[in-house]
Nucleic acid binder design. Structure first.
Lengths: 288, 288
DNA sequence: GTGCTTTACGAATACCGTAACGATC
DNA sequence: GATCGTTACGGTATTCGTAAAGCAC
């Protein structure tokens, strides 16, 4: 049974005549008449009795009308709900982000989104880029904010958001001892503190370019932990700017230099996922 | 929003891929793909994300799916209920019938219908033909069992069911007094008992053909009342056979003769009403 | 006459299938 | 290579409008 014909039948039943329904639908009378004939043929029984004054429902017609009403309600609800989602009157986005972004960029974007669209909810999952990519692939999040020290992997489709410098972070005594003229080479013999896999690889590469292989003494993803280790003199480290923006230990010294490299960050989502209005809105906020 | 596309979308969501849905629907893949594209275009947001392994719903897609499910349920219920009505697993017919038929023909037909289709209900309204016709016209009953002494009115579309003779009914003494060779002319001076408007007209016409105008003393629609009046000698009357079949007073005498005329009976319904299965079934029972 | 209905028929358009192609496992 | 997806395009079938006609108030 064609649901469109059910709706046409409903229009006729409610209007009381085929002509009136045709006027409401913006059609001609015969068009509506034909649909009714087809519907009655497919159901095998008379749904309405025609007369010069209009139509009157038969018992099957009355039964069918109540179903048609329910169907129309569902269709209307579907349209309403979709309209709510497209106009951002409601919605949900699941975002994965690495820790230092989750502490800086993300809260600002979420606040901006919330201000403009209070009923669009963001669900944040903190995850390092590899895991974040897996979450996207598995469909567990809609959007992932990830970083890359190198050029972004060629195979990965991502939306670049920005570049941040990597800084050298040392204990205050180092700074004092070198009278502020610290070079990477001065730290060849120091113990190093490194973070995640990719951060460690970056540190090793940067050191190699300075002519030595760093001795990794401590490993922690957590930029607060890392800075505390550095602050008490247990090692030195490289940290991206956003980590230092998120948290800055009072007694570490920070130095910038092009040779420390940069870190790119950007957004990853499944193909087409940015056509979901709530996701697109969060992308816009994060891009701003 | 085209409800058919909602159902197609539902098929895809449930099957997990466009190809699988196309196989279920007996269509080709591009056909389904095009419908989805149209649906997404009309809603303005992505409903599902395509990949080489199939499709995955977006948030709007999940919302829409639940509406599509509800819609499919209603459509299925509509089909079920209509099928029940057409196959006479349920239904209702409203019948108007004149008293003597309501006492004879109708109970047999209703019993037959009930035996074959226990859940098809008949609602009987006792009504003389003119009122029965009005009930049909107003849509208050589906079917009317009516009679006519003359040829059925030309303007009326009816389904003839049969003809019954009209009998002369007199008190036993008349019968004895005339030694069973009673003629209508013998009763010219008797008081007459007549029933409804049309029965009275018939009686007057029959008497006129016999050469006299009857003196109407008593008037009653009720064939039990009429026979009791006749039985105690308060008058004579003409009654159709069905009234005598419904009730026969033990001490009245009944005589048949072509000159008493006949009464035709048949069914009236609105144009097309016999396309309602339950009505058609009752028509069949009454015609048997 | 004015309103309701229907049928018949032609033209526009919606729809499905075929063919060709790209991406992923 | 098998299976997923898409786009492009053509023929068929649906579907709507027009025209003509029948009925009831």
């Amino acid at each position: 049974m064609d649901p469109r014909r059910l709706l046409i039948f409903r229009a006729v039943a409610r209007a009381g005549s085929i002509s009136a329904a045709a006027r409401e639908l913006g059609w001609t009378q015969p068009a509506v008449s034909q649909h009714l004939r087809t519907l009655e043929r497919s159901t095998g029984c008379a749904l309405l009795l025609r007369s010069a004054t209009g139509v009157q429902l038969t018992e099957p017609g009355r039964v069918l009308l109540s179903r048609a009403d329910a169907l129309a309600v569902q269709l209307h609800l579907a349209e309403e709900e979709l309209a709510d989602l497209t106009s951002l009157r409601r919605g949900r986005v699941r975002l994965a982000a690495y820790p230092s972004a989750a502490a800086t960029l993300v809260p600002r974007a979420v606040a901006g989104l919330r201000e403009r669209h209070p009923d669009v909810d963001v669900e944040l999952t903190e995850a390092e880029p590899p895991q974040a990519l897996a979450l996207v692939a598995a469909g567990d999040v809609d959007l992932a904010l990830v970083f890359s020290y190198d050029d972004p992997p060629a195979e990965l489709e991502w939306r670049p958001l920005g570049v941040e410098p990597v800084a050298l972070v040392v204990g205050g005594e180092h700074w004092a001892a070198t009278r502020g003229r610290l070079t990477l080479g001065d730290l060849a013999e120091e113990p190093w503190v490194v973070g995640c896999e990719r951060c460690r690889a970056h540190a090793v590469r940067v050191c190699a370019e300075a002519g030595f292989e760093p001795t990794v003494r401590h490993v922690s993803d957590d930029y607060v932990v890392v800075q505390n280790l550095v602050a008490v003199g247990l090692g030195v480290t490289l940290l991206p700017r956003s980590a230092l923006e998120a948290y800055r230990h009072p007694s570490v010294a920070v130095r910038d230099h092009p040779s420390y490299g940069t870190r790119r960050f950007g957004l990853v989502h499944r193909e087409g996922a940015d056509s979901v209005p709530a996701t697109a809105a969060l992308v816009r906020e994060l891009s701003a």
